[in-house]
Simulated scan of single mutants.
Amino acid sequence: MRYKDLSPAVRRSLWPIIGLFVLLLANVLISPEFFSIEIKDGRFYGSLIDVMNRAAPVALLAIGMTLVIATGGVDLSVGSVMAIAGAVSAGLIVGGVDNIAIVIGGGLLAGVAAGFVNGFLVGYFGIQPIVATLILMVAGRGIAQLINSGQIVTFHHEAFEYLGVGYLFGLPFPIILVIITFVLVQLLMRRTALGLFVEGVGANASASHYIGINDKLIKLMVYCVSGLCAAVAGMIAAADIGGSDANNAGLWLELDAILAVVIGGASLMGGRFSVFLSIIGALIIQALTITIILSGVPPKFNLLIKAAAIIVILLLQSPEFHRQIARFKKAGGAQS
């Protein structure tokens, strides 16, 4: 079957997967042992495992961001929500709370509360998503700093630290959390009517309202899910270093999350979305980072190379870009 005979949906799915494959292949060419995986004490070790493990926070953010973008919104506050959730959990531990359920529950509750504020401002007050979430993006780090009393809070709690450095079934626990989150969200979006409601609100919120879909409630829900995913990512980050750094936790990761969703083929105008391809986008971003490091390129060129590679991937996904290439080939053939 030729490429032009493929459906648009298949074409959108094809390029992110090809992009990831090319990056992984480049890593193999640079470092032949890249795909080698060792098993020590029942745990898997290797560069490929490291890529997935380091991509976990962005992948979690991308899962929530996918649903927000699918409704035509955006959540710029997820990095700050990570800081808040990490600060809340760290504060509970330092405050003497030993119950892991309360520590994790506190972080999750903080994430849902942040998502509720964003969703309420966007859905029920009609504030532009970029403005509504920008408020918490700025204020959120201030809230986290207040919780931490302006300090970097360190702690030792084996059960909580398991979120960041633990292993389950031989895999780092952050990878397991991404898989669990993906499965739950995928079942919720594709095995119930919610996925259609989200796409409907993103495609045309007014029309969705007139056919009986509560577009305000849908927007509130997706921002709460985004906050919940950000909270999990924030607790992973805090557990990984054994502390809460309100200034640096999740810093600029909201941009990587948005980029991962776009690489996955989602439209920023809302409507279509794919949670799986957003995770592929997160893996592409991390794999690209590893590729640059392994290639020995001076650090000052890292961001430029990363931007150029992502532009290429996005162009390959663009139907208009392919139409322009086809016109160029047609014009060249006519001249010859």
Rank of each mutant, 00 (worst) to 15 (best):
Y3F: 15
S7K: 14
W15H: 11
W15K: 11
V22G: 01
N27S: 09
S31R: 14
S31I: 00
F34K: 05
F35E: 08
I39A: 06
G46Y: 04
G46P: 06
D50M: 13
N53A: 13
R54Q: 13
A55D: 02
A55Y: 03
A56S: 14
P57I: 10
P57M: 11
P57F: 09
G64D: 00
G64Y: 02
M65I: 02
L67E: 11
G72Y: 02
S80P: 02
S80A: 12
S80E: 04
A83Y: 00
A87K: 01
A90P: 06
G91V: 05
L92F: 13
I93M: 05
I93V: 14
I93F: 02
V97L: 11
D98T: 15
D98Y: 07
I100E: 01
A101D: 01
G105Q: 08
L108F: 12
L109G: 10
L109Q: 07
A110T: 06
V112D: 05
A113R: 00
A113C: 08
F116H: 04
F116T: 09
L121T: 00
V122F: 07
Y124N: 08
F125A: 13
F125N: 06
P129N: 12
A132I: 12
G142S: 14
I143V: 15
A144G: 06
A144I: 03
Q145M: 15
N148P: 00
V153S: 04
H156V: 11
E158L: 06
L163H: 01
G164S: 10
V165C: 02
G166C: 03
L168M: 14
F169S: 09
G170D: 10
G170F: 03
G170K: 02
I175F: 10
V178P: 04
I179S: 02
I180E: 09
I180K: 09
T181A: 14
V183F: 15
L184R: 03
V185K: 02
L188H: 02
M189V: 12
R190C: 01
T192I: 08
L196S: 14
L196N: 15
G200Y: 01
N204L: 10
N204Y: 09
H209R: 14
L217E: 05
L220I: 03
Y223H: 13
Y223F: 15
S226A: 14
C229T: 11
A230I: 03
A231F: 04
A231C: 09
I236T: 06
I236G: 05
D240P: 00
G242T: 03
N247Q: 14
L251V: 12
L253R: 06
E254V: 06
A257L: 06
A257N: 09
V261K: 05
V261R: 03
G264A: 09
G265P: 12
A266Y: 03
L268E: 08
L268Q: 11
M269V: 08
R272I: 07
F273L: 10
V275M: 07
S278V: 02
G281D: 07
A282N: 07
I290C: 00
I290T: 13
I293F: 13
S295C: 04
S295W: 07
V297G: 09
F301I: 11
I305Q: 00
I305W: 00
K306R: 15
A308I: 11
I310F: 01
L314Q: 07
L315W: 01
Q317N: 14
Q317R: 04
R327F: 12
R327K: 15
R327V: 12
R327P: 00
K330P: 01
A331G: 05
A334H: 09
